[in-house]
């Protein structure tokens, strides 16, 4: 009895171990959905372009430096906001297009700390949702006096309410897909 039992269980165990011991390496996942980079592109009246990119701390390389947005007081800028997935450096993805496609489910808000900027929403048709709300991918900034401060940009997914009474934008519900802070220096 004991021998039979022992044989049986060793057989079983052997079968299990041998049949499942193929060591196939798992496939790498480059996250399709993650946003690693947030880019602000400024075009001034003289048609000069400045680009600032915030990269997620997990995806920064050794050369990364915290961006500081340098603007002039009393000036007007056309500002474009873009989101990228650079988790796979071989296949950089522009997430902004997805956000535009799903403009009904997305909303961008801006908040300035310690600096005064007048902001208006300047979205093209691809950035205006079914309720007629410009979601905030394209904006026009008018800087006021000189000063140092911060800008917080948020991308909200599926808010229950979007409010642009104040063009900076406010909302309820939803969850935050992007929330980054940029340093701003408005100087001469």
């Amino acid at each position: 009895m004991k021998t039979i039992q022992f044989t049986l269980f060793s057989l079983l165990f052997l079968t299990i171990f041998t049949s499942c011991s193929d060591d196939d390496a798992p496939e790498i996942i480059n996250e399709e959905e993650v946003i690693t980079d947030v880019t602000l592109t400024f075009v001034n009246e003289a048609n000069e372009t400045q680009i600032y990119t915030y990269t997620d701390p997990s995806y920064r390389d050794e050369n990364y430096q915290e961006p500081v947005i340098m603007l002039k007081p009393g000036s007007t800028y056309q500002v474009g906001l873009q989101f990228f997935n650079k988790s796979n450096p071989q296949d950089i993805e522009d997430i902004t297009n997805e956000v535009r496609e799903e403009r009904n489910d997305h909303f961008v808000t801006y908040a300035f700390g310690q600096v005064a900027v007048d902001l208006t929403r300047n979205d093209s048709a691809s950035g205006i949702d079914a309720a007629g709300i410009p979601i905030g991918l394209d904006t026009i900034w008018e800087t006021q006096t000189a000063g140092n401060g911060t800008l917080v940009v948020k991308l909200i997914h599926e808010p229950t309410l979007k409010d642009v009474t104040n063009p900076m934008g406010s909302f309820t519900g939803g969850e935050t897909d992007v929330e980054v802070a940029f340093q701003i220096q408005i100087g001469l």
Binding site: V38, P57, V180
Partner: peptide, 8 residues
């Protein structure tokens, strides 16, 4: 807290 592109 840790800050990411999605906030803190």
């Amino acid at each position: 807290l840790e800050t990411t592109v999605r906030g803190a």
